[in-house]
């Protein structure tokens, strides 16, 4: 039992484990379901997942750690992903990255002091016709500048 998780979160995780237990290749959809609800995949539930899916704890850890999308620790309330791919680089994303890091006072994989926003790099958002692109939570924004992103953050995260 992980004390940092609420009873409700535990119940959610249990339900997801049960729902995916017999799905072929069910580990990936299970990890997605947990992270969608809880915001991350708590390491403390690896043993339960392993047992239900007949895997070793090491295998569960191996899958969570292999994929950039999954994380085993909580992050900020909102997530800002900045595209680092070539198309965005051709439109000045290196400058955008530097300016955003300076404005937010965080580096990649860090969360602002108020716990509100985590900055992540991403490799391609598929919005290469409107570079540079960022994704704030589940929405993509194109032709961005540091000022536009800052305005978005105020609107979405503090609005």
């Amino acid at each position: 039992m992980d004390n940092t998780l609420s009873h409700e979160q535990h119940a959610q995780i249990q339900a997801h484990i049960q729902a995916h237990q017999h799905v072929p290749g069910g580990l990936m959809p299970l990890l997605h379901a947990i992270q969608d609800d809880i915001g991350y995949v708590p390491e403390t539930v690896y043993p339960e997942i392993a047992k239900a899916l007949a895997l070793s704890v090491a295998e569960v850890h191996g899958v969570v750690s292999f994929y950039h999308h999954f994380r085993s620790h909580p992050i900020g309330k909102h997530v800002l992903q900045v595209c680092r791919a070539e198309s965005c680089q051709s439109m000045g994303s290196a400058k955008l990255e530097a300016e955003l890091k300076a404005k937010l006072g965080v580096d990649y994989h860090q969360t602002t002091a108020d716990g509100n926003l985590t900055l992540l790099p991403v490799y391609c958002l598929g919005n290469c016709g409107c570079s540079p692109a960022v994704m704030l939570d589940d929405e993509v924004y194109g032709r961005m500048s540091a000022d536009k992103v800052t305005a978005l953050i105020s609107e979405v995260c503090h609005g």
Binding site: M28, P29, Y67, V122
Partner: peptide
């Protein structure tokens, strides 16, 4: 089925491993 941000999974055999939950 949702991938999870690994570029190499666009390679077909890596993709199949991922679909199998590995």
């Amino acid at each position: 089925r949702r991938a999870a941000g690994a570029y190499v999974c666009g390679e077909e055999t890596s993709l199949l491993e991922s679909l199998e939950g590995k």
